[in-house]
Design a protein around this nucleic acid. Structure first.
Lengths: 251, 251
DNA sequence: CAGTGGTCTAGACCACAGA
DNA sequence: CTGTGGTCTAGACCACTGA
């Protein structure tokens, strides 16, 4: 048996907790990696030993390890072992570009709701949301700023019966957070990211010069039943914003 | 027992195949969803019945189903069952923006290698690749076009000892495909996507006007050991290109 | 060759959803 | 209440890696 950096580590598993055992183990392994108890390149030691030492079955231990492999923290090699990824990437970004919350991380953003009303769906909006043309949709237009400077103009459409959108709450929290609170589970989103030059009107609203480069994003988001729950057209000042994200290659 | 759309379907499992059983099942389920034998909203029937009917154990069937849940094709609900996602999104895009191959899908792209040489790493390149400043890196500069029109200017840096980059082959295939052929397994990448206005020189090389909006992308890619294997700075003509991708929300 | 992860089995009990 | 997926066990054999 090879030596393992795990030998000296202690894991506290609570069988009475409602939290699944594999999840408890995964969290504690992740924490150990995070604060350096498990350094990049360290071998974890084989799964059989680990399971007997923890008093768990091998499939349970495997499930914990697999979840960290999926997150990109560990690598398994048949005939070799499982090691901590040797990486500069400290903590993988979540799919943050999906969330309005992204800017909340650090900047203290403010949101001004410009429009919040019910309108009939135009053809493109109806197509994106899978509704009939003319069906009622909520039109939401917001201007988001940080440090008193506008950053983005967000235009969103939602099925009118989906959710009640309180303007005051929208100015203090993100749209996605409100949807989650209302019991809507986001599942996937399709995005197109491009760029173009600002029109005179856009430039005025974003405090840019006409012709300045803008980053554009169109997105349709789906809940876990596959129903389209949101369609948005966003424009960002390229001078103040960029999308930053991490991709994991599918096994 | 509830009726299931699966009852009439036939699955051919070959136990002598080197392909894992769960994978064979997953592929055939995916095919059935794809060509409509399993329509959105259809219930799959419970896992126990399915496993006895197929002559597999329940964990094996679960593994097959789970892989499709991870892909976003199926949804599981405790107490309800597993159903095909009710979605407009036909086939989720792969993380295509990671691959040079993306443009190969449809457009018949051409690549001209502008530079392909070994240079000492500047500070920013060294930092991105985790090398010492001044270490040897391969500098690769390519101009990619479709239909005779330039689309993107791709500038990449790789550790010099990683791979031999044959200029002729680079003009007929993607960089990532060459890396994969050389036994390098891509694992993750960190990207930043932004926009800015074209400088006079960039405009000339991309056949745009000075000040035109450009889409920019910086990327560092890592292999499965976490070693940085590529750093790139790409610029795209926004009038001819946009990133299109699908996000799955982490469970 | 020995050691590793990859796959698979045949059960078990639980938590939650819906009638 | 019944039926579902969620979790867990204690084994087994195989394929691949590296010495």
């Amino acid at each position: 048996m090879a030596a393992s950096a795990l030998d000296t580590l202690h894991f506290a598993l609570d069988r009475n907790s409602p939290v699944p055992l594999y999840y408890q183990l995964a969290q504690q392994l992740e924490a150990a990696i995070e604060h350096g108890a498990l350094a990049p390149g360290n071998l974890l030691g084989n799964e059989i030993d680990l399971s007997t030492r923890l008093g768990l079955s091998r499939p349970t231990v495997r499930q914990a390890i697999q979840s960290l492999v999926d997150k990109g923290l560990l690598v398994r090699r048949r005939g070799v072992g499982t090691q901590v990824v040797h990486s500069q990437v400290k903590r993988p970004l979540e799919l943050s570009s999906l969330y309005d919350d992204l800017e909340a991380a650090g900047q203290g953003p403010t949101t001004r709701v410009v429009r919040n009303e019910t309108v009939p769906a135009t053809a493109d909006v109806a197509a994106a949301l899978g509704l009939a043309e003319g069906a009622e949709v909520t039109l939401l237009e917001r201007l988001r700023s940080t440090h008193g400077q506008p950053v983005a103009l967000l235009c969103n459409y939602l099925p009118a019966d989906l959710l009640e959108l309180d303007t005051a709450r929208l100015e203090t929290t993100g749209l996605y957070r409100m949807m989650r609170t209302a019991g809507i589970t986001l599942h996937s989103a399709r995005q197109t990211v491009g760029a173009r030059s600002a029109t005179a009107e856009e430039a005025a609203r974003l405090d840019e010069k006409e012709g300045a480069a803008l980053l554009t994003m169109q997105r349709t988001a789906y809940d876990d039943t596959g129903r389209a729950v949101e369609y948005g057209t966003h424009i960002y000042r390229a001078s103040r914003y960029a999308f930053d994200f991490q991709l994991l290659v599918r096994g």
